[in-house]
Amino acid sequence: MKGRNMTRWRDPAKDPRQEPKSQLITAEGHARLKGILDHLSRVKRPELSAKVGEAAALGDRSENADYTYNKKELNRVIARIRYLTKRLDELQVVDRLPADTNKVYFGAFVTLEDEQGEELEIRIVGHDETRSDLRWISVDAPLAKALIGKSLDDEATVAAPAGQTTYVITAIQYRTPKPS
């Protein structure tokens, strides 16, 4: 069975997938994950179970594409439910502002200016709520690590694919978290 269920061995000490994820999450992110879990548990799983049951009742399962597809989809949903249940138990919800709102900490909206004078606004959030379209970056990201603890007008240098980039912090904002 060459290739099936086989993966390439990776040194755990050097594998970036093995790096521990931050256990922090915003109240909004926690509520969103709970909503996804609730939808999967109450809507998606029963719907797929019914489809699998209907397809199984038709007879020969080995040649039944509906059965095969829906069974795989049901297994994927069940795995996602297990992952979310475990992950939600591990997470620590950050539901208050930091003591010093003049410095960059978890949950901050930070406006940066690069060496060419272009502005970039990012938000530092937990690993499970990163969104590139909104420029929400993980607290574990190199840029976030370079910014944590910095104040207004401080410089942060981060390694980028084109070399090192230096940013100047031009604004730091926090929005009052909504309780979950």
Rank of each mutant, 00 (worst) to 15 (best):
L91A: 08
D11Q: 05
R175E: 15
R82F: 03
A162D: 14
G59A: 09
P12K: 04
D11L: 06
K44F: 04
G149Y: 10
L88A: 08
A160G: 13
A162L: 07
V43H: 14
V52N: 01
A57G: 12
K145Y: 00
K51I: 06
I81W: 02
L120K: 15
A108E: 08
I137M: 02
Y67W: 14
K178N: 05
R175T: 12
D140H: 02
A13C: 04
S41V: 06
T130W: 06
R32M: 13
N70T: 03
A159E: 15
E54R: 13
I148S: 07
P46H: 01
L147I: 03
A108Y: 10
P161T: 06
A27L: 08
A159T: 13
T26E: 07
A27K: 07
V158D: 06
N64F: 05
L112R: 07
T111E: 08
G53T: 09
K71P: 01
K71D: 14
I36Q: 14
V110L: 01
L33G: 00
P177M: 13
L134D: 03
R131P: 00
L143R: 02
A141S: 15
Y105F: 12
L88C: 10
A171W: 02
G163Q: 07
L152G: 02
S132Y: 11
V110W: 02
F106C: 04
N64I: 03
T111R: 15
K2N: 12
V139C: 10
I169E: 00
N102R: 14
K72D: 12
G59Q: 09
K178C: 00
V125I: 10
Q23E: 14
Q164I: 00
E113K: 14
D15K: 06
I36R: 14
V93M: 05
T166L: 00
L84F: 09
R4T: 10
S62M: 12
A144S: 15
V110I: 10
K103H: 11
K21H: 04
S138H: 04
S132W: 10
S151C: 09
A57K: 14
V43L: 11
H39T: 06
R131M: 11
V168W: 02
Q18V: 08
A162V: 06
A144F: 03
R87K: 03
L84W: 09
L37D: 07
D114L: 02
H127F: 12
F109E: 11
E54Q: 12
D15M: 05
W9P: 00
E19M: 11
Q116A: 13
A13D: 15
G59H: 08
K71L: 15
E63V: 11
A171R: 15
K150F: 09
V125H: 07
H30S: 11
V104A: 03
D11C: 10
A57I: 03
K34L: 12
T130F: 04
E47K: 10
K86P: 01
G107L: 05
M1R: 09
D114T: 01
V77D: 11
R80L: 14
M1H: 12
A31Q: 13
N70A: 05
S180C: 07
T101N: 07
T176S: 09
P98N: 04
A79Y: 03
Y167M: 02
R61Y: 00
L84K: 08
P98R: 01
R10W: 04
Q173N: 13
L84T: 09
R131E: 13
K72M: 13
A79T: 03
A162I: 05
T7C: 08
T85L: 05
D89S: 13
